[in-house]
Design a protein around this nucleic acid. Structure first.
Lengths: 96, 96
DNA sequence: ACCATAGTTCTATGAATATAAAACAACCAA
DNA sequence: TTGGTTGTTTTATATTCATAGAACTATGGT
């Protein structure tokens, strides 16, 4: 591959761990396929999981660098870090 | 993306779980970068892990469909299922 | 027959993961 | 101020995972 990065695993392993879960994979698909913005609550509802569980999954994805959040005072909106996917997992979102 | 498969997660999640580990990621890289064939022992030695641990990782990768093995009576040779990578994780091996 | 080689399976163990109830924090609205 | 909405953190629990020693299987060489 192109430029040799020092310890790529450090970034990649948490990313793959974050994606290696059915619920989080579904969250990523939902975000990819939804034009408008989605809140944590919206997504949690679609996944039919407890809000604390949803929060845990969002944290996992965020800490892996795969999503970002925007707080609108009351509501927290979630979006995909497409740039990160493109850099570390090019093609993944399309094949998902 | 193209043809809708019934429950893609069933295949994809075990694959991502298999890849979400530093040692197994290194095994995959080693296989990708090595021209000739490699045996289980060869790889285990390079990873500096116990042979039982190596065997466990090979089983994980094999059950995920990512590698295949060829037994030469005494020795077991491991190879990447590049076709599987191309189908489910196109581009991954190149970006790894 | 005996020993060495190559791997798998069994067993044990400590660490990490996924789940959700409960308590908490921050905010808005009536 | 009281109460409802939105999400995080804490705590608990059950499960899965990574590791390796020990025993076992299979094969070959001498």
């Amino acid at each position: 591959m192109n430029i040799k990065q020092p310890n790529k695993n450090l970034v990649l392993v948490p990313m793959l761990k974050a994606l290696a879960d059915e619920t989080r994979l579904d969250i990523v698909r939902t975000l990819r396929d939804t034009p408008g913005e989605l809140s944590c609550g919206d997504i949690g509802e679609r996944m039919s999981i407890a809000k604390s569980t949803a929060s845990y999954h969002f944290r996992t994805l965020r800490e892996a660098g795969l999503i970002s959040t925007r707080k609108d005072i009351r509501t927290k909106y979630v979006s995909l870090r497409r740039d990160v996917f493109d850099e570390y997992l090019p093609g993944f979102l399309d094949s998902l």
